[in-house]
Design a protein around this nucleic acid. Sequence first.
DNA 1: CGGCGGATTGAGCCAAATCAAGACTGGTGG
DNA 2: CCACCAGTCTTGATTTGGCTCAATCCGCCG
Lengths: 248, 248
Amino acid sequence: MYGSIVPPSASARTDTRLSSLPDAASPVLCAPLRREELRDLVRTQRALVRARGQAVVREGDRADRFFVLNSGAVALQRSLPDGRRQVLDFLWRGDVIGVGDGERFGYDALTLADTALCTVSRPDLERLTEDYPELATRLARIGSERLTHAFDRMTLLGRLSAEEKLASFLLELSERQGRCSGRSNPVWVPMSATDIADYLGLRVETVSRRTSAFQKKGLIRRVESHRIALLDPAALREVAEGGEGDED
Amino acid sequence: MYGSIVPPSASARTDTRLSSLPDAASPVLCAPLRREELRDLVRTQRALVRARGQAVVREGDRADRFFVLNSGAVALQRSLPDGRRQVLDFLWRGDVIGVGDGERFGYDALTLADTALCTVSRPDLERLTEDYPELATRLARIGSERLTHAFDRMTLLGRLSAEEKLASFLLELSERQGRCSGRSNPVWVPMSATDIADYLGLRVETVSRRTSAFQKKGLIRRVESHRIALLDPAALREVAEGGEGDED
DNA sequence: CGGCGGATTGAGCCAAATCAAGACTGGTGG
DNA sequence: CCACCAGTCTTGATTTGGCTCAATCCGCCG
């Protein structure tokens, strides 16, 4: 969107050595796994790093592995034969690829920035859930949250205006980054305007125009490369909920 | 849409006596449960019937029960404060409400026609999954299918034209009814045009216009009350996939 | 410094929304 | 049995939000 892709604070350290994982509390702050579970995981997991724009999984791949994001960002997406694209979700540190999926992945997963993840085979995870029943519960919760989020997204895509969509998107980014990394206000926006458009069911130009309009109204401010400050989250919330949009 | 709501073949027989359930193969043809599982279920399940337009669950209700549809049809939906509505899914005989949900339901479930369902409490179902581990697998599969379907729907809502949406909808109805009741061609359309519009992210008038256009092109024909014959499913498929739409 | 890909901005257009009548349907009561 | 009523569907006229097309502009990188 504006500037080069630089992770918010984690710097370029990719942090892929698995041995460092269980001790480091931070990289898995909102991951679904706990220390003792991770300790067992380490035996079977593999770490991997993907540069920006690489595929982690492809639609149709056998879903025989799970992935947990340590850093970076990933987009889940579907592509139509004629090139149209729908971004299904953006994934952040601690998010998981493969939970709640069936036999095969139903989407491509592409990195939006340099990304470090670790991966566990499905049989290994199944074995783990037997040793740690609470883990199964946690995974089920993740699945249900994904579904609830999918319902949110359908409502957004089907019924919100461009302005409402963009406001919702910014607030979602903020909320989600607050949960995962603690810093929710100058929001990290690693994805391109095209990615955002494909997430919201809009075109790039519309995203650009609405972003400019928000900035002109003083609701947001572009602070640096790929970062946006929410100057008036309350007003943004108002816009997102369908408030007239004429009160400035 | 046109005419009164009459279930496709099942007539008005509501079939709610639970004692009849385990023996009758037909009402649960595509249900996730098997005979022996159902036999145990019968001890704890309750049957209920809802007239057209009734709520089965409300958004925010504690998700402490599961529901299985025996007959009829249900819409899952979200409502925005200003009255806008998004239909998340239509449910048919054999479909389940509550699988993959978290602590609380994230949607209203309303009947589109007179509907018979049975319900099991969550603890009872959990007990059952211990006795029949395969049932847990089946429920997981249902959950993953719901998620995949949610991804389909996002793509439809975000990226398809009105014409493509409607064609996809008709084919989905046909496919789903084929799986559940065996009869896939004259499709049963129990929901109102408004419901369809809210499912596809369109307005009623647009649904009506596009339906008329399909009929004029000879792709479909309204055969009777709430039933539509797909005269040329291949052409409909072509339209749904983004075929130009000018070949008639 | 110059070129390239993505972002922005402008002008005009078009698909779907909106507004506004009617027509049909099913249900009700006389 | 029919007339009427309410709700839904259909069709037409018009508006409009977001798309398309087309220049730039800007930041990044070689």
